[in-house]
Amino acid sequence: MKRITLILIAAVFAFAGSAAAKDWKKIRMCTEGAYPPFNYTTPDGKLAGFDVDIANALCDYLKVECTWQTQAWDGTIPGLLARKYDASIASMSITEERKKKVAFTDKYYTTPAKFAAHESFLTRVIEGKLGKLKIGVQRETIHDRFASAMWGKKADIVRYGTQDEVFLDMKSGRLDLALADSVAISDGFLKLKGNEKFQFVGPSFNDPKWFGNGAGIAIHKSNQDLVELFNKAIAGIRANGTYKKIQDKYFDFDVYGE
C-alpha cells in the first residue's frame, strides 16, 4: 500500500513537473468584461475592448491559442492564484502590493486617474451647498485605495463592484464625484449619449506610489516563463505596428505613455 502511495505521489510530481515546463500552446486568458473601453461585453455576449484586442494580438504574435473567460474584478487575483486561468488582462495596475501575490508583465498602457463630476459641481462648491462629499470608486482598485487614504475621513467613499455601477449612480445623482481612470471615464461615461452634463474636474493623478506603473498582465508567480513570453510579445507588437493599429481603433492619443 505504502509503495503504491509513493508511486502515485511520484507520478503526480512528475506530471506537475512536466506541466510547469510545458511550452505554451494554449493560454487561458481572463478579463473582467465590465470596464469599457478596455474590456466589456458586447450585446451579443462577446468580449471586446482594448485589453481583449491587445491580448489577442499578443497570442497571434506568439502563435498560441487563447481561450477567454470572465471574472468579476474582486476575484481576479484569487482566481489567478487558484489557477482558473493562466493570465489576466483586465487593466490591472502594477502595484507593489499586488506584486506580492502575482507576477506582472511589463505595462501595456498607462493612463492617469481623474475626477469626474456634474457640471453644476463647481457652482455648488462656491455656493457652499455641499455637505460631506460622496466619492464613488470601484471597490479595491487603485482609485479606492488612493481616495480612502487621502480623503477617507473627510468624505464618504462609496465602493462599487464594477466601474459601470459607479457611473450609473453618478448619473442618478447619488455621487458628487467619481474617481477613476481618465480613459475609463471619458470613453465609458462622458462620451456616451445623455452624459453631456458631466465633465472632468481637478488634476490628473499618476503618483506611482498609489497608481503603480501602468497596467500589466497578471500571471501566476510560478509561470515566470509566461511573463517573459508576454514581455517579448508586448515589445513585438509595439515594434511591428500592431499595437498602434489597435490603439487607433479606440483612442486618439498615445495610450502607452512614456
Binding site: W73, D74, I77, P78, L81, K101, R139, E140, R159, Y160
Partner: peptide, 18 residues
C-alpha cells in the same frame, strides 16, 4: 454598496485575496 457582513467579507477578500 452597503457594508453588511457579506460586504465586509468582500472587502477582506479583495484586499488580501483570501
Amino acid at each position: 454598496t452597503l457594508m453588511d457582513i457579506t460586504g465586509a467579507a468582500g472587502i477582506i477578500n479583495a484586499r488580501y485575496y483570501a
